[in-house]
Nucleic acid binder design. Structure first.
Lengths: 329, 329
DNA sequence: CTAGGTGCAAATAATTTGCAGAGGC
DNA sequence: GCCTCTGCAAATTATTTGCACCTAG
C-alpha cells in the first residue's frame, strides 16, 4: 500500500467539505484497486464507527459526480468504484478465482471500437472492455501476489518507452541515411538530424531513469499500454537505394516527413487518453516533435530561399513515422 | 417479431420439462433482444397470471445452465438475459437515451483481446465489449426504429459476404495471372483455377441470394461482423512481374499457397465463433477451400511425377491469402 | 442564518430461499 | 412413489429516502 503523494491535495470538489467527507475520501483514495460500496463502508467504519452507511453511499455519489471516482461493473451485481482522478481510463482483466482484477489499456482496441461506433453513427461516451477468466497465479495454484495499483506510473512508463522506441528508430534511420547519402550536404543534414535524435533520446532516457527511481520494480511490472504500430515499422525499410542520391533539400524533406508523422501520431493518441501522467508524456512528446518539425521547416524554407527550389528526384521518401505498417508483433 | 423457425425444436435441456418451464422458455425465445428478469416475468404473466416470479427466476437460472440463455450486464444493476442458443457470441452498442442495444462482432477486437490476455498469462473464458453512448436515431431526434434482432441471419450474411469477397479477389487474381503468364502450361493452370473460382463464386452467390429471400431487407441492415484483413489485400499486388515466367508447376504452387491461406484463415476465424449459421458458413468455406487445396496438391504431385521437379525460379509467389497486409480501410 | 451534510431507521428493488403442496416419469 | 417443480410469502442483499438534527460558509 504505497502512499499516493500528490493526489489528495488537489481534490476537485463541489458542495461542502465536511469532516466526514474528508475521511471517506481519504480512505477511498488510499485504496489501490476498486472497492464495492460495502467494502468502502467497512473500511471507513474501521476508522470511525459513527460514519453511517448512508453517508458513505452519498459521498460515493458525490465523488462520481465530481470526477474523483468512477463506477465499474464486473457483472456480479455489485457496484465497484475506482479512482478516476489522475488515473488513466483503462480496461480490466478479471479473475474468476481470486476475484482480483488487473488493468490494461489498448489503443488498438480503442481504435477498432471507434470504427465500429462510427460505422453505426453511434456517438460513444464510454466503452467497457473486460476479459473474464483465470489469472496466471490462480492457474498455477500460486498464492496470488499483491495487486500493485500503480496504473498511472505504468502508463507513464509505457508512454515513455514508446517515445524512446520511436526516437531510437529515428536515430537509427537518420544514422543509416547519413551513412548512405552520397551528397555531402544531404549527408550533413542527416548527421545533424541524427545528432538531434540522440540528444532528445538522452533527455527521454533521463526521464525514464527518474521514473524508475519512484518504483524500483517498475521495469519488471507487466505491460499496461498495449500498442502496436507505434515503434514498429515506423521507418520504411528499403529506402536505402533511394537515399543515395538525396541532397540537402531532399534530406530536409525526409526529416520533415518523419517528424510530422511522429508528431501526428503522438498527438492523436495522446488526445484519446484521460488526464494522467502518461497523457502528459504523449502530448509533450508530440509537441517536442512539433517544435523539431517547425525548426526543420524553417530551415527548409531558408535553404530554398538561398538556393532556389531544386527538382525532387525520386518520390521515394519513406512513409511518415506513425504510419501503421509492419503491424506484426 | 419474426418467428424463429427451428430454434424451439431442439432445446437442449436437463431436469424436467414442465408446462411452466415450457411456457417461460417459449416467451423467452420469442423475444428478439434481451430482457431483464422482471420484463420476462411480466411477459410471462401476461399470458398466464398464475406463474410466479420465483419460478421465472428459477427457470432463467436453468436456461443459463443449459446454455439456452446468457446473462449480459449493462452496468445499471439489472441482470439481462439473451438467447445464446443458435446465436453467435457478440458485443453491444448501448444507447443511453432510448435504452436499446445493438449487437456487433469484431474479430479484430477479439484478436487483440486474446493477445492482451496471452501477454498476461490470463486464461480468458469470456470477454465483454460494450460501447455506451447515443445511437444514431436518438442523436437526430428520430423515433427509434424497430430493433430487429436477427443477429444469426446478419452473421450468416456477413460470413457469406466475406467468403464471396475472398472468392472474388481470388478470381481476379487468377484471371490476371492467366493473362500475364507467358508459359502456356502455367497459363492453363491459372485459367483452370480461375474457372473453379468462378464456379465456386456462383455457388456462394446462390446461397447469398437464398439468404436474402429469408429477409428482403437483409442487405440494407447494418454490418454485424467487423472484420478487416479478410478480403482486403489477400492477394499481393505487384506480383505481376514475377508471374510472367511461371510454368505449370509454379502456377500450381501459387494456387496451393493461396488456397491454403484461405483455408487457414476461414478455419481459424470460424473456430472462434460460437455455434450459429455464420460459424457454419465459415467452417464450410474453410473445408471447401481445403478440398480445393487437396485437389491442387494431388495434381501437383502427379505433375511432378510425370515431369520431375523443376527448379523454382524467383521466390516471388504472392503471400498466402489470409495474410494481414494492406490493413488500411 | 441557512443550504447542505449526517444519522438513523424505514423504504425500495432485485433476487433468493424455506416450505408445503402439485406434477412429471 | 419419489424427486423435482411450483407458488407463496418471508428473507436477503444492495441501495435509496424521509426526516429530524447538525454544521460549514
Amino acid at each position: 500500500m504505497s502512499t499516493l503523494p500528490d493526489v489528495r491535495d488537489l481534490k476537485p470538489a463541489g458542495g461542502k467539505r465536511s469532516s466526514k467527507r474528508e475521511q471517506i475520501l481519504n480512505v477511498f483514495l488510499n485504496e489501490e484497486g476498486h472497492l464495492t460500496a460495502e467494502e468502502l463502508v467497512s473500511r471507513v467504519q474501521r476508522d470511525d464507527r459513527r460514519v453511517s452507511r448512508a453517508t458513505v453511499y452519498r459521498t460515493i455519489q458525490w465523488m462520481v459526480d465530481a470526477g474523483i471516482a468512477s463506477r465499474v461493473d464486473f457483472g456480479d451485481g455489485l457496484a465497484r468504484y475506482e479512482r478516476s482522478y489522475h488515473h488513466p481510463r483503462h480496461n480490466h482483466l478479471i479473475c474468476n478465482k481470486c476475484h482480483r482484477s488487473f488493468e490494461f489499456m489498448s489503443s488498438d482496441i480503442e481504435q477498432l471500437v471507434d470504427e465500429v461506433a462510427a460505422s453505426r453513427g453511434f456517438s460513444a461516451s464510454q466503452t467497457v472492455v473486460q476479459i473474464h477468466g483465470v489469472c496466471e497465479d490462480c492457474q498455477h495454484g500460486r498464492p496470488a501476489g499483491s495487486d500493485h495499483g500503480l496504473t498511472d506510473l505504468l502508463f507513464a512508463r509505457d508512454a515513455l518507452r514508446m517515445a524512446i522506441a520511436t526516437e531510437r528508430s529515428g536515430l537509427e534511420f537518420y544514422t543509416r541515411a547519413a551513412r548512405l547519402t552520397k551528397d555531402a550536404r544531404g549527408r550533413s543534414i542527416f548527421q545533424k538530424l541524427a545528432e538531434e535524435e540522440r540528444h532528445h533520446l538522452g533527455t527521454l532516457e533521463g526521464r525514464y531513469a527518474e521514473l524508475l527511481k519512484r518504483d524500483p520494480e517498475l521495469e519488471t511490472r507487466p505491460t499496461f499500454l498495449f500498442f502496436k504500430g507505434a515503434a514498429h515499422g515506423l521507418f520504411a525499410e528499403g529506402a536505402d537505394r533511394l537515399l543515395q542520391g538525396v541532397d540537402d533539400q531532399q534530406a530536409l524533406l525526409v526529416g520533415i516527413r518523419c517528424e510530422r508523422g511522429s508528431h501526428q501520431f503522438f498527438k492523436k493518441y495522446g488526445e484519446r487518453f484521460e488526464d494522467s501522467e502518461g497523457k502528459q508524456i504523449f502530448l509533450e512528446f508530440a509537441s517536442e516533435e512539433r517544435e523539431h518539425l517547425d525548426l526543420l521547416m524553417r530551415e527548409y524554407r531558408a535553404l530554398v530561399k538561398r538556393q532556389g527550389r531544386r527538382p525532387r528526384k525520386g518520390a521515394g521518401v519513406p512513409a511518415a513515422r506513425g504510419t501503421r505498417q509492419g503491424r506484426r508483433a
